[in-house]
Amino acid sequence: MTTSLAPHLPAARRSPGSYALVDAVTMLRRTLLHVVRYPGLSVFTIGAPVVVLLLSVFVFGGTLGAGLPGGSAGGRGAYLAYVVPGILALTIAGTAGGTAITVAMDMTEGVTARFRTMAISRGAVLAGHVLGGTVQALLAVVLVLGVGVLVGYRPEAGPGHWVALVGVVLLVALAVSWVGVGMGMQARSVETASNLPLLLTFLPLLGSGFVPTASLPAGMRWFAEHQPFTPVTETVRGLLLGSPAAPDLLLALAWCVVLTALGLVWSLRLYERRSLR
């Protein structure tokens, strides 16, 4: 499977790293083909945040916008500008569910077991799911942001801010995808694979994505200010506004490193444990 897609180099001259890279690209292509053939998960991943965006703005936006600092004159428009970064964070978090389900499908249908018997890098099998989830997250963010623009959102970001925003989205999506892979491997069935990712989906809701953390009760406010998606949301919000986001950016990057490391170690340990059975 891998040799037909490998670069045309003599086997003796190819390093283990080049094999792993080719295998990862092969697994990524397989994941993307799976998305095309079974588009239901992708439609839900994009459709749910769009519905939440429209409900938040057109149903609750007038009242919530008036309650924002300096938002009394803006109303619904002020809330649209505030909530879009939170919806984008919610969109990225939601992709973990799709990743977990596809991983669980491979585990329960014996596909992963078959890969273990083939000359394929074990890390590449997991990396294919991670890269596929990251690509889906980036596309979902673009589409949701496009809907936000259609309903009146106007980013003020400059070229540098847009470059930084893409980098942040990719890193957060990579971290979420690794955690999603671990959750999918932990699930006992495809039906239960979407349960654990719900924890990630709730985090943007319990942060600064929809209301300022200062408006929350004391205990909830402490949690909101110290969970991963609050600095992510604030970084995205600052970049879209074209303002400096250095303190929140550093904290968001730190959380990306922590989540990626945890997801990577968790996924590899589960993979190795299953391999010994």
Score class of each variant (00 low, 15 high):
D23G: 13
P159R: 05
V36I: 14
T117P: 09
L9G: 08
G132T: 09
V144W: 00
P197L: 08
T63F: 10
L80W: 00
H34N: 13
E272A: 14
Y271S: 14
V25T: 12
A20E: 11
E156D: 13
L5R: 13
T235C: 09
L68P: 11
V211P: 11
E191C: 04
H8K: 13
A89L: 12
V125M: 14
M220F: 10
V50G: 01
G182I: 01
A127Y: 03
V83N: 01
Y19W: 15
T134P: 03
A164T: 05
H8V: 11
A246C: 02
L253H: 04
A24I: 05
L270T: 02
L90Q: 04
P204S: 04
T260S: 13
S121Q: 12
S56V: 01
I87D: 00
R269K: 02
T235Y: 04
V84A: 00
I92D: 09
V50Q: 02
A193I: 10
T112M: 15
T3D: 14
A104R: 03
L68F: 09
A12Q: 14
L90D: 01
R277M: 13
G132K: 13
L54K: 10
C256W: 04
P85Y: 00
F60D: 00
A137I: 03
G160P: 01
P159N: 02
A218I: 03
R237E: 09
P155K: 12
A73Q: 11
E234Q: 15
P217C: 03
L88R: 07
S275Y: 07
L90F: 15
R37Q: 14
G123H: 05
G75A: 04
V149H: 02
L80K: 00
G184F: 08
W178K: 08
L33K: 13
V151R: 13
H34M: 10
T91G: 03
V125E: 14
V36G: 06
G133M: 13
V176Y: 06
T91N: 01
L138Y: 02
A137D: 08
V36D: 05
R273M: 08
L249I: 06
S121D: 15
G65M: 04
V179H: 00
A78D: 04
L250W: 14
Y38M: 09
L88E: 05
L32M: 14
S15D: 04
I120S: 10
V190C: 07
E272P: 03
H34C: 07
L239N: 01
S4V: 14
T108R: 15
S189I: 12
L171N: 01
L145N: 00
M220I: 14
S275E: 14
E191G: 12
Y271M: 14
A127T: 09
S189A: 15
T95I: 11
S121Y: 07
T192G: 10
E225V: 10
A252L: 05
L9I: 12
S4D: 12
G17A: 15
